[in-house]
Design a protein around this nucleic acid. Sequence first.
DNA 1: AATCATATCCGAAACGTTTTGGAGGATTTA
DNA 2: TAAATCCTCCAAAACGTTTCGGATATGATT
Lengths: 338, 338
Amino acid sequence: MATIRDVAKKAGVSVTTVSRALNGYSDVNEKTRERIKQIAQELSYSPNLLARSLVMKKTKTIGLLVSGLRIEGSKDNFTFEVLCGVNDCAGELGYELVLISTDSKKQQEKTYKQLCKERKVEGVILQGIKTDDPYLDEVLNSEIACILIDVPMESDSVGYVTTDNIAGAKTAVEHLTKLGHRNIGMVNGHSQAFVSQERLEGYKKALGKNGIRFNENYVVDGAFLEETAEQVTTNLLQKHPEITALFCASDLMAMGAIRAAKQLGKNLPDNLSIVGFDNIILSSYCTPSLSTVAQNRYQLGVEATVLLTNILEGKTAEKSKVLPTEFIKRESTTENHG
Amino acid sequence: MATIRDVAKKAGVSVTTVSRALNGYSDVNEKTRERIKQIAQELSYSPNLLARSLVMKKTKTIGLLVSGLRIEGSKDNFTFEVLCGVNDCAGELGYELVLISTDSKKQQEKTYKQLCKERKVEGVILQGIKTDDPYLDEVLNSEIACILIDVPMESDSVGYVTTDNIAGAKTAVEHLTKLGHRNIGMVNGHSQAFVSQERLEGYKKALGKNGIRFNENYVVDGAFLEETAEQVTTNLLQKHPEITALFCASDLMAMGAIRAAKQLGKNLPDNLSIVGFDNIILSSYCTPSLSTVAQNRYQLGVEATVLLTNILEGKTAEKSKVLPTEFIKRESTTENHG
DNA sequence: AATCATATCCGAAACGTTTTGGAGGATTTA
DNA sequence: TAAATCCTCCAAAACGTTTCGGATATGATT
């Protein structure tokens, strides 16, 4: 590879001049600049970003740090779609993207800071972290710029982006109440997830607004897993056969719930209405197709990138963003003919 | 951040000694080594990889270059699952992973070489490239180490990994012939894809082996898209109502074919058996669930990474690998009661 | 004619590592 | 005792950039 020195030599100028010419400084004659550009092209010179970063102390690189990047993620595609958004947006804004994945094992070895410093990222987008994750404290107390996905916490250097889970859940449950359902169960994720707390809150709000008393026995946790959701739903429906509708905190768990209901001989949606959350691909292909509240995961990635680069470039702007949801009616919900 | 100089100063030794101590050279006293390690830990020193790479001319970084990384990819998850494989394996082998995505617009601006040199990757795994892509020539004529996914071409520095598409397709079609089908249509992808050529070959082989004459009118191209597949399938079935079974070159196209058949009033699978290729998540959730030939996309990524690092480290090993497929019987295929 | 401003260029230091070639002293060998 | 060997350590160069502080020449101003 041609270096800046080669270009300088061939052009008969100093290294300094080549650097300043190529970087658009004004203290170089336009004619020499053109000549240098020409020669740079001939030698197909392109600056060594390592050397540049080393001296400038800037890498123009952001990291997408995902905790638990696993093949299982392909069922809901959350990570992938966020990744697409981050990737597109980062490219647009002139940043490179490196993928950093950790798991609990790796986290024992390396601290968050080490991970970031080592990979020389200027800032980080963090996805898949739980509320009880030890990294979370580190993130909040670190000076590294960071945007959290679905964890609403802020500090000087950290912001977040999330979906309006409360409103989304409320809409979903009110859809059920409008259909005449009164005994509405909920299959939640787990208590270490902010989104679970919020979706539960939305559920309660919708009940309250419609004069339905909250019954804690109607709420079970499915760990955001299809199989677990299937089991807990089976239990729930057996214990409380009066339930005519279910709100699931994720579409994937709704799949499990559907299987559970079918297993119990229920006719869907006549015996049981089910609404999910996420609008994953599966939800429009399963039978019955799933009414759900859609969240835009791609946009989540885009907004996270925008917020992060704002911080990095010292722009004074909001450090958080909450995206709206959209309710999608499909076949899995219908009037209560109790 | 603490530098190597800080460690050296505090330990009262030279920079050289710190470097050699930390990198496990034998010409440093064990006692000093321990002291240096201790001090490095105290200062939470970790080497600046930029500086190291600059002098060593090695970055220990591989790139996953995907042509057309788009949100639509979440339907079949090909890219994501390959990514997971590459990520896991690269981490295991001590390589960093950067994601490089291009599209036809970007390709106009930057050559393959520039893209790689700029991002300082030592080698590349290339996914999503078509046979008529201009990058392909560049790759083959470049000295940059590269593993192609699903493009069986080799050179000094490039290898490939793919699935045994011919055998997979043959198995799928023979499954249909065993069920008594004789008039078997095929919904292929497009001619710029190697996998299409191979799957077609498998289709022909299966027919030939079972004494069925190949009829080119029975083969249509669905561009690997669900909607396109739906249209061409509709046409195919209308023109040739004698067809009792379809082999689709991808599950996604099979989804389109299923819709087309339902639209035409066909009862699935009794009026029409359909078999797909890929075993995407959807295929087990749709109705009827899809018989298909499974390929292990995660493993594709893993093997690609292994092959690539072999090349990078100068190991003399095979530069290509072909993975087996596995046929999965589900509901969408049944005996021909034509 | 002397001063000042401007336009254009450059030398050298700096970034944080690794590596080369050798120095100095202790120990072993002849 | 002299020579050879081994064990530790280090100074300096190198990697390819950017940037600071000046240098030179030219033209404008007093």
